[in-house]
Design a protein around this nucleic acid. Structure first.
Length: 306
DNA sequence: AAGACGAAAGTGGTTGA
DNA sequence: TCAACAACTTTCGTCTT
């Protein structure tokens, strides 16, 4: 599943992540999508003559959730079409168009607005297209179920974004989504929970490891330290030190320890900053890690060298 | 003087009666 | 619906480098 191919052209790091199901390669560091839409273009049928080929083809324009009507909308014609109609059908034409407009204005206009907001937030967070699609899908379902009532459109968009990130294993913290969307963190969390519950969307508890590449690069730590941190998290997970704890806290503390071991010390303050947790949390996790993982030896070794 | 440490009180959310 | 509870935060005083 995890395949390290080459360097990311954007940030030069090697955190490329190949996802076969979604058909794309993304950089876990900066979110750049390197390869997208890796579809198998082959046909699964054979054409013998033009006639039967026509019957077998069944592709049209691709559908997408980031277009308010999935690119499938039907429009009741414009005035240009009118002159070919007779009087009776003219009335019908106007009636139909009136209804068309009514329906459009209600749901679709809201969707249009929301999706442009969604795109804004998504590009701010540098998210791959597949996540944006997912968020759009979630938002669309939320609208259809009337879950937006009583909530601001922006907050539901933010909640959908957050959920989509989690489902695609490229988690952003609540703080990051909050910053990108201009919605309070509490509110993002609230709508996220509400929406996922109402739509019965299952979201796996996020893995601390998913946060490490990004935190690591904001702290400008070496790849060596980064893999050390991942190793620490994995060891912690085996000892069940991670359940029930906030994943960002664990990721941050692991990075802090890893940096310490490799002599790239960062202050608790700095690590806490990028991890979106407080120093106290770092300290608590840090202490647990030292206690249960006997990392003291490694740190002592380092001290002797100096 | 800055960073690390830890105690204590407060916050928002989950859970179980 | 309410109270108990766990995780995390805020704040602040003390210790270490």
């Amino acid at each position: 599943m995890r395949d390290f191919v080459k360097k990311c052209p954007e940030c030069g790091r090697i955190n490329l992540f190949f996802n076969k199901e979604k058909g794309e390669i993304i950089c876990k560091d900066c979110g750049l999508v390197i390869e997208d839409k890796m579809i198998d273009f082959g046909q699964e049928w054979r054409e013998f003559d033009p006639e039967s080929a026509e019957k077998k083809r069944r592709t049209g324009a691709p559908t997408t959730y980031t277009q308010f009507d999935r690119g499938l909308g039907t429009e009741v014609g414009r005035k240009a079409d009118l002159y070919v109609l007779k009087k009776k059908s003219k009335n019908k034409f106007f009636r139909l168009r009136k209804w068309q407009n009514r329906i459009s204005t209600a749901i679709e206009r809201n969707l249009k607005l929301a999706l442009s907001e969604l795109k804004r937030v998504s590009s701010f967070l540098k998210l791959p297209k597949s996540v944006e699609e997912e968020a759009a899908r979630i938002y669309t379902m939320a609208v259809q179920r009337g879950l937006v009532r009583g909530r601001s459109m922006e907050s539901v968009v933010a909640g959908a974004m957050y959920a989509a990130c989690r489902r695609h294993e490229v988690p952003r913290t609540l703080d990051e989504v909050s910053e990108a969307s201009g919605i309070e963190r509490k509110e993002v969390g609230r709508t996220y929970r509400f929406v996922t519950r109402q739509l019965a969307i299952t979201v796996l508890p996020s893995n601390p490891i998913d946060y490490i590449p990004r935190f690591s690069s904001s702290l400008k730590l070496s790849p060596k330290t980064q893999s050390k941190a991942i190793e620490i998290v994995e060891r912690a997970q085996k000892k069940e030190l991670t359940s029930g704890r906030g994943p960002t806290g664990i990721a941050s503390a692991s990075l802090y320890v890893a940096a310490l071991i490799n002599g790239e010390k960062r202050t608790q303050r700095e690590v806490a900053e990028v991890g979106g947790v407080t120093e106290v949390t770092i300290r608590n996790r840090y202490k647990e890690l030292l206690d249960k993982l006997n990392l003291e030896e490694e740190i002592k070794k380092l001290k002797k060298k100096e």
